[in-house]
Design a protein around this nucleic acid. Sequence first.
DNA 1: TCAGAATATGCAACTGAGTTGCATATTTTT
DNA 2: AAAAATATGCAACTCAGTTGCATATTCTGA
Lengths: 139, 139
Amino acid sequence: MSERLDEQARHMLRETKLYCTEARVAILRVLLEANGPLRQDQIAGWESHKLNKVTVYRTLDSLAEAGLVHRAFLQNRAWHFELADHCSEKQCHPHFTCTNCGVTRCMTDISLPLAKIPQKGYVISRQQVRLEGLCPACA
Amino acid sequence: MSERLDEQARHMLRETKLYCTEARVAILRVLLEANGPLRQDQIAGWESHKLNKVTVYRTLDSLAEAGLVHRAFLQNRAWHFELADHCSEKQCHPHFTCTNCGVTRCMTDISLPLAKIPQKGYVISRQQVRLEGLCPACA
DNA sequence: TCAGAATATGCAACTGAGTTGCATATTTTT
DNA sequence: AAAAATATGCAACTCAGTTGCATATTCTGA
Ligand SMILES: [Zn+2]
Ligand SMILES: [Zn+2]
Ligand SMILES: [Zn+2]
Ligand SMILES: [Zn+2]
């Protein structure tokens, strides 16, 4: 099954005309396996892959540019990345963060209506929602 | 009228039982005058006030803790602060950022419905929305 | 299949916003 | 006015992100 994910990653890269390098495949695999947003250092250290920090940085940059990956949100000064395919065209799923224990969870089963800007001329290409509160364990 | 703002700032501080210091009054005034979220360095350098960076940092921290000020939900590495009174109890107004020219605008006239989390046990205390796209000038 | 072009990698060194300890100054309270 | 409570500012630190440059990989097309 790791074969399967590798193949999937390679396919995604070919689709977007990105060089199919070891680092890109590894990073896409990590994101495919993860069930939520990850920090760069989490990706770099995933299962002792020991990917170089700068490579991870530049790879995520290229993956984001290609639209395969999104910068989900900034938390504690660090970007959190996740696959873009969890998101619809214009709206990413909301993320909930517990103010007590700090866990962040993808709320893939919720979606809010797209905002309508009354002033003429605005074009919205992406809407992001952040929820803050207490998780079941802390409430 | 700057007298007016000073008085207003002092009043806010007294209300929240915070020490009424020169730095706090100055920073509140800056935020009262500003029409959008500001970075710490913008606040520190506002009209040659030349406030100390660490003081600005700790002051904003205390103002946020007291609920007078909020950290806006933007996609930048630097926090942006604004007065909290633009926000309702559970929801802050959305912020729109133009991906072309970079301007950020408070969308105080829009509001989305509060998210409903289907899973039991979650308590949402705050919802924040970020919009990205093209402003009228860039569209 | 192999040379050359195009692109990615990794080291080291830097940036920039935030953060902290500690001695001193200010504000409040008594 | 003195004491207690809190805020300020310097300097030094953290840490994720970022960049230059030499080297290594990947891709392309003869
Ligand atoms: Zn929790
Ligand atoms: Zn997510
Ligand atoms: Zn614009
Ligand atoms: Zn705002």
